[in-house]
Amino acid sequence: MSTATTTPVGRMTALARAELTLLGRSKGTLFAALFVPLLLPFSVQQAAKGMDLAEAGLTLGTVVLPASIGFSLLFAVYSTLVAVYTGRREELVLKRLRTGELRDREILAGAALPAVATGLAQCLVLAVGCAVLLDVGAPRAPHLAVLGLVLGLVLCAALAAVTASFTRTVESAQVTTLPVTFLSMISSGMFVPLEMLPDRVASVCELLPLTPVITLLRGGWTGELSAYEVIGPVVTGLAWTVLGVLAVRRWFRWEPRH
C-alpha cells in the first residue's frame, strides 16, 4: 500500500492535466483561445497605420505587439477561464473537488494552468512573430516585459474568477465577459495607445485593470520607462490583483444556485 501524501503541486498538476484534456475536447473554447488572439492583431495593424505614431515616440511594432499580447490575455486566458470556472461549477465539479484534499486556491489555480500556459505560449509566438514581421526586435527592458506578462496572466485569472462569480451558465459567460473585454480593448491602450489620447482621458484609462499590463509590456520593448514611471502601473496592477483575490474570496460561488 502506498502511503504517499499529496502535495499542493501534485494535486494541482493532476487537476491541470484533466483540464488540459478537457480544453482539447472543447472545440469552441479551443478555437476562441487559439485563433482569435492571433487574428485580431491584423485589425490593430490597420488602425495603427492611420495614426501619427512617430510623434508619440512609438512604432507600428510597439503598438501592435502589446495589443496582441493583450488580446491573448483577454481571449486565451480571461474569457476561457470564465467559461471553465462557470462550467465546472454547473457540473458540480467544483463542489466535488472541495470534498477532497485540494484547497480552494489550488482548485482555482490548477484549473487555470492550461489556459495560462496557452496564453503564455501565444505571447511567445506573438513576440517572435512581431520581431520577425514588424521588425520590433528583442525587448530593450526584458524585466518589464516579463513583469507585465506575469502581472497580466495572474490578473486575468483573478478577473476570470470574479466574473465567474456573477455568471450563471457557460452561455451567459459570452455576455458577462464583454465589459472587461471591450473596456480593456478600447481604453487600456490596445487599439489606441494612451499616448494618443487627451491627458485627462488617459489618466482615467491608466486606472483600468489591464492598462498597467500594456504599459509595462510596451515599456519593455521601447525601453523608455524610467524606474519612477514603472511605479504607477505596478501599484495599479497589484491593487487590481489584490482586489480581485478579495472579491473571489467574498463572492465566488462553488455550487450552482438552487
Binding site: 499529496t6 473537488l97 484534499e101
Partner: peptide, 9 residues
C-alpha cells in the same frame, strides 16, 4: 486518474 492525483495513499 485526476482524483487519484489529489488523494493521499
Amino acid at each position: 486518474r485526476m482524483w487519484a492525483g489529489c488523494v493521499s495513499g
